[in-house]
Design a protein around this nucleic acid. Structure first.
Lengths: 206, 206
DNA sequence: TAGATTGTTAATCGATTAACAATC
DNA sequence: TAGATTGTTAATCGATTAACAATC
């Protein structure tokens, strides 16, 4: 029923490159072509197709539009999910710009901060509310996903507020590892760790 | 010789939490305590310690300062690596603020852009050069790691410039999957994929 | 000593890769 | 048909978890 994490990550990438192909009027694509676009192997593409129950044709490969639709139905389940961005610092603003309008089923419809200068105004086209009123707004606006870009010192406190307010999915960009109850899905990304990983593996180059 | 990717990621996180403990004057830490701090199991901590060849004592656990030093010697190899940030947009600036001065062995000493208004000036305290002069500066300044935050349309072209200039490690924040030769280490982070992953798994909650 | 902790081997789990039959 | 491609099973690889002896 639930697909593997890595398959979901690849489906997200397949879809993105397929959408550009769609506009190129390309109707069909072979597993090795799709594989090349994201630099993986054709076997892996076919395995993913198998896992999601999508079949191609032997002669022409996979039908681009149908595959996009199939991925839509899996990742988004054909239902809109509302998203809030929490913490309008440098990083928050950058993420807001970057992630907006990338997926019509994922709508960033609110942001939260504790700065009086931001509260009540629009930020990158999105209304900004006080973190103190988060619970009310999250329930009213039916927001179930939060992107967390607050300063590390506020991370735990704010995550608890969000969880109490009914948030079901958190994308944590702070460098504080969070602990969430089992009825919340947590995805963490630690950019310092990423950079240090590059530093480590770069030592072995040449 | 080369440690597993996942172990390196955890070492990076261990070090970060250990540094705060150090200032709390805590001399020793048990595997279950360190595990709790980053929400993993004590077995995994001990396995990582084994892999890096670091021993604790049965009575008191692991010596905090020594362990920090050990991780320093692994991740940074006790040598400074110079880093450039390429692409001073919203995301680039945010990353620059975020990643600066986080590790004394990883020095962000230059940034590159193609905007005449930025070239020749300082950006977040770092000198900004023209991407056209990247090769010269990268060689002169002995930069071997690049953080890529250019717009997607420029990603491939710029990555090729960097690789030709001798960059050995790339942290790619663009949503274009890159292909690099085997003498370059590539780490990619795709935030759209992260968000879509949260969207998918959140559907199964409750 | 008894209890708690480390270090390490074995077992399991998850993901990727290899191999190949089926078929257009 | 011959060649190329898909779909799927088996094999392998890598990472985590379980189990437990050693020991302070």
């Amino acid at each position: 029923m639930v697909l593997p994490e890595k398959t979901i990550e690849r489906l997200s990438k397949y879809r993105r490159v397929l959408i550009t192909l769609k506009y190129d009027q390309k109707g069909y694509i072979y597993s090795h072509e799709l594989a090349n676009l994201i630099h993986i192997t054709p076997e892996q593409v076919r395995r993913d197709m198998m896992l999601i129950g999508y079949s191609g044709t032997l002669r022409r490969g996979y039908e681009v539009n149908q595959l996009i639709e199939k991925i839509n139905s899996i990742i988004d389940g054909n239902t809109v999910q509302n998203v809030a961005l929490v913490g309008i610092g440098n990083l928050g603003r950058a993420m807001l710009n970057y992630l907006q309008n990338k997926n019509r089923y994922l709508k960033i419809i609110a942001c939260f901060d504790n700065d009086q200068n931001k509260i009540g105004k629009m930020c990158c086209g999105i209304p900004c509310y006080s973190i103190n009123d988060a619970s009310t707004h999250i329930k009213e606006l039916k927001i179930n996903i939060a992107i967390l870009t607050v300063p590390t010192t506020a991370a735990i406190e704010v995550s608890e507020i969000l969880i109490k307010a009914g948030i079901k999915g958190i994308l944590n960009f702070t460098t504080i590892p969070l602990k969430v109850p089992s009825n919340v899905y947590l995805e963490e990304y630690d950019m310092i760790t990423s950079l240090e990983k590059v530093a480590y593996f770069t030592q072995f180059i040449k």
